[in-house]
Design a protein around this nucleic acid. Structure first.
Lengths: 185, 185
DNA sequence: ACCTTTGTAGACTGATCAGTCAGTTTATAA
DNA sequence: TTATAAACTGACTGATCAGTCTACAAAGGT
């Protein structure tokens, strides 16, 4: 495997376990099986590495969601797809999802341009449309967005803290979506 | 003011801004206006300081909630009180609330005995009772608890990201509770 | 008055860290 | 072949860190 990928993989594992500053670059290099200097060959600073990891994970999540989405769906179906695929990804890539949460309450989040964060929420557009069409409740789009996001985190947390079979997990995710939909529609 | 309190206050401010490991004890001491050694007089290690800060904040939040709660309320009123008072506190003590979120996705959370974390959720008992009495939906108590918690975080995030007048904020919190109640009852 | 405990200070230390550097190996292409 | 660049190495460094130590001051008890 690519050494650059190994570095990201090792960084993810150690950051999740020991935190950003609690993980020395020397340990990352060792875990990745590369020399100290190699890490700095690919990432000028530790900061760069952290940001690159964030971008990498976010890109992968976005690609997963996009790959499963089909155009011309009704708003509800589109939302459901987004919801379910995000949660499935969160369970398949638990470390990655956990990292995102760590990152979001860390000082590093300030290094990401605010627009970039909102772009993740291209669902925003759909929310605006849904409100206009009276499919969604007449509440501020930002507010609905917060509700949706936190709902997803809540389900993820519950799934991660229990050990459900795949089928039960799947059912819970679907039921959770209906609960969410009742809440916002 | 007590130097010990000054140290906690300074630690909170700097941890929120720079993260746990991103904040040296020397800077905490300087911000608190005490000597380096004084900090270690009150807290044997930096770890102890972090844990003490967590305990302090959690105690203050719990006391706030308890002080506003009255016995013999119906389940809905009790829940509403918990919900509203938590959110009011989160807006009055933003740094403290943010710190709790940082702490919860940090490696330090592992140092808190699991039972201690659940005790925060003494609401659990009420949830169990509510399910039995068919006031709440027949779902796992842990699941409902996750939904309630994440809902609170979602509202907090929205409130923190906008600048509503006190009265509008108050109304939004109350409306949000009704949305939550419809979701779980 | 004397002693003990507690609080406070800040210079100091050994360890650790992010990042550098001088040089070696590997890959690519002329 | 040879030339050139890119990948890679690990010893090294200056800075910084958590925590220690010695000293002194204040408080309180007898």
């Amino acid at each position: 495997m690519d050494k650059q990928e190994e570095i990201l993989k090792a960084a993810l594992k150690l950051f999740v376990e020991f935190g950003f500053h609690g993980t020395p670059t020397s340990k990352i290099a060792k875990e990745a099986g590369v020399a100290n200097g190699t890490l700095f060959h690919y990432y000028k600073t530790k900061n760069d590495l952290i940001l690159a990891l964030y971008t990498d994970i976010k890109t992968r999540l976005t690609e997963h969601i996009d790959s499963k989405a089909s155009k011309n769906d009704s708003l509800k179906v589109a939302f459901k797809s987004l919801f379910i695929n995000t949660l499935q990804w969160s369970q398949e890539y638990k470390q990655e999802f956990y990292f995102m949460q760590q990152f979001r309450v860390s000082p590093f989040i300030l290094l990401i341009p605010h627009e970039d964060i909102l772009r993740q929420a291209k669902a925003h557009l759909d929310i605006q449309a849904g409100i206009k069409n009276e499919i969604l409740k007449p509440l501020p789009a930002e507010f609905l967005f917060s509700l949706i996001n936190s709902h997803i985190y809540g389900i993820d947390q519950y799934l991660s803290s229990t050990n459900l079979s795949d089928s039960k997990q799947q059912k819970l995710i679907e039921d959770s979506f209906e609960i969410l939909w009742d809440m916002i529609a």
